[in-house]
Design a binder for these strands. Sequence first.
DNA 1: CAAAGAACTGAGTTATTGCTCAGAATAGGG
DNA 2: CCCTATTCTGAGCAATAACTCAGTTCTTTG
Lengths: 213, 213
Amino acid sequence: MPADPTELQPRKQPRQVRAELTRQRILTAAAHVFAEYGYAAGTTNRIAERARVSIGSLYQYYPNKDAILLELMTRHLTAGIVAHRQRRDAEPSGTLEQALRAQVRAVIDNHRDDPNLLRIMFEHAPRSPELFRKIAQFEREHIAYAQQLLAEYPEVRVQDTYVAARLVVSTAELVIHKLMAEPDPLDVERLENEMVAMLLSYLTAPPRAEGEG
Amino acid sequence: MPADPTELQPRKQPRQVRAELTRQRILTAAAHVFAEYGYAAGTTNRIAERARVSIGSLYQYYPNKDAILLELMTRHLTAGIVAHRQRRDAEPSGTLEQALRAQVRAVIDNHRDDPNLLRIMFEHAPRSPELFRKIAQFEREHIAYAQQLLAEYPEVRVQDTYVAARLVVSTAELVIHKLMAEPDPLDVERLENEMVAMLLSYLTAPPRAEGEG
DNA sequence: CAAAGAACTGAGTTATTGCTCAGAATAGGG
DNA sequence: CCCTATTCTGAGCAATAACTCAGTTCTTTG
């Protein structure tokens, strides 16, 4: 439990090429080890062993175990944000259904990347303030984008686009990850269609009178 | 990591009243300690200390740490299943909206119980086969009930009630827990209404032609 | 090619924690 | 009130894992 936040920064900046390679090897090994053993049982010695690097080298670049997971998460989220912005700025969104489908696909692809590592990072997040902050920031950006998107379509008839955006983003993320996971993963195409259908019908349903039903 | 499944059974059955009290104190203390420190940092010594019981006593009733969490989870799920069956068998379900609302409310109440402990149990589940099995069984029952419910309402126009049931159950569970959690929890009443609206519109939307939109 | 410093090594230190066990305290039946 | 069974105690054992550091190897540079 690091009290000093600088303790999460890498200890030394590599000056030689081999050092950069070592860093990269450690990171790759950590991703595999965490995904296979989980965070607690993914020991630093195991990571070093898998990276074919001595434990001492590992601690030259990462002051502690948390710092390794933090960097993995940072890289993952950064890549996600970049891809996200590219999609947003590149082509026009098309119909509402197309836009929703694009978002749903992105989550599905994200899951396929490395479900185990992903799960471990998100599980560990509540105990690591740094991770928590990073994820929260990412989510905020996600929701802001979704809200902005909803505002573009007149057929979206929800009362409050902020609440709707949060609901849509959470639903897509959580439910897709859940239903793609073991045991009994759902057929991906089916899942995609149902998810799009659900979000679409929610967003475009006529506003309901109080106490209707 | 217990290899022998009998290692998860309590070691001895209490014969005197004080023993039963000790057992209960340990369990209550464990719930608090796990909720506050998480599973890894919630050490058995801390639990014993909080229960004002010696560490030796703890190990007379629980063969290892996992067994404590397992019993907490078992009690929680059992209570959930019982309440669930009572709701199902007691009154008629009413309209579809009313039935959905009842389910959504149940999840909300469930969350309010003890969100931290709940999160920890579900996080730890993947690493504990026993826990995993218990949860899976509970979910299966949940889905089966939902599927049966959907079949009762002609206005439900989904293709496959099994898939729809899984979607509905997962969505309610995950999204509610997420949006009620820190940071920035949503207003509960609002959440309830939106969730019901989303599920209802999904279930009753007219079937969509292929490639529509 | 030699000196300086960057990078690497891995046995060992330190701290933590799950869990044991020998014995003390308490309860209940005769 | 004694004897046996039950319950409780807590110092300490054993295992594990994060992390250090003194010394070695490799790179670069003047």
